[in-house]
């Protein structure tokens, strides 16, 4: 009985939503997407910066440290770096700040 009620509530809510935006197709609120810029990182570092099979974890990376390390990559100052120096030089300071904000905001 409880289950039926909840379905009814969902159905009712949906119906109201449909009525209110009837004239504007598809203009409902879209949940904000993860920052697309960070998607470039996910190919190696995994979604949400969780790391994968030995790729460094980016989730929870302290913001200032992220920016400092990025700068070290840019200037070939990181020991044992492989591909990151080539990547680091392709992003602007604003983009790096966005990435730093994002990864520092995720819980490790």
């Amino acid at each position: 009985m409880k289950r039926t009620n909840s379905i009814l509530i969902v159905t009712a809510a949906l119906t109201v939503g449909a009525a209110s935006s009837f004239a504007e197709p598809y203009k409902q609120k879209t949940p904000s997407a993860p920052p697309l810029l960070a998607q470039s990182c996910s190919g190696c570092h995994g979604q949400l910066g969780k790391g994968q099979n030995g790729t460094p974890v980016l989730a929870g990376y302290e913001r200032d440290a992220f920016i400092r390390v990025w700068d070290e990559f840019r200037h070939n100052q990181r020991p044992a770096a492989t591909i990151m120096p080539r990547i680091a030089r392709g992003y602007s300071d604003t983009e790096i700040a966005q990435l730093a904000d994002y990864f520092s905001s995720i819980r490790r």
């Binding site: 190696c44 994968q52 099979n53 030995g54 790729t55 044992a80 492989t82």
Partner: peptide, 21 residues
């Protein structure tokens, strides 16, 4: 040698990561 070895390892990590993504 160290870089080649690391890149081989990161290649394996890349494969695991991208296929998961």
């Amino acid at each position: 040698k160290a870089q080649r070895r690391l890149e081989a390892r990161y290649a394996d990590s890349w494969y695991a990561s991208i296929t998961k993504d």
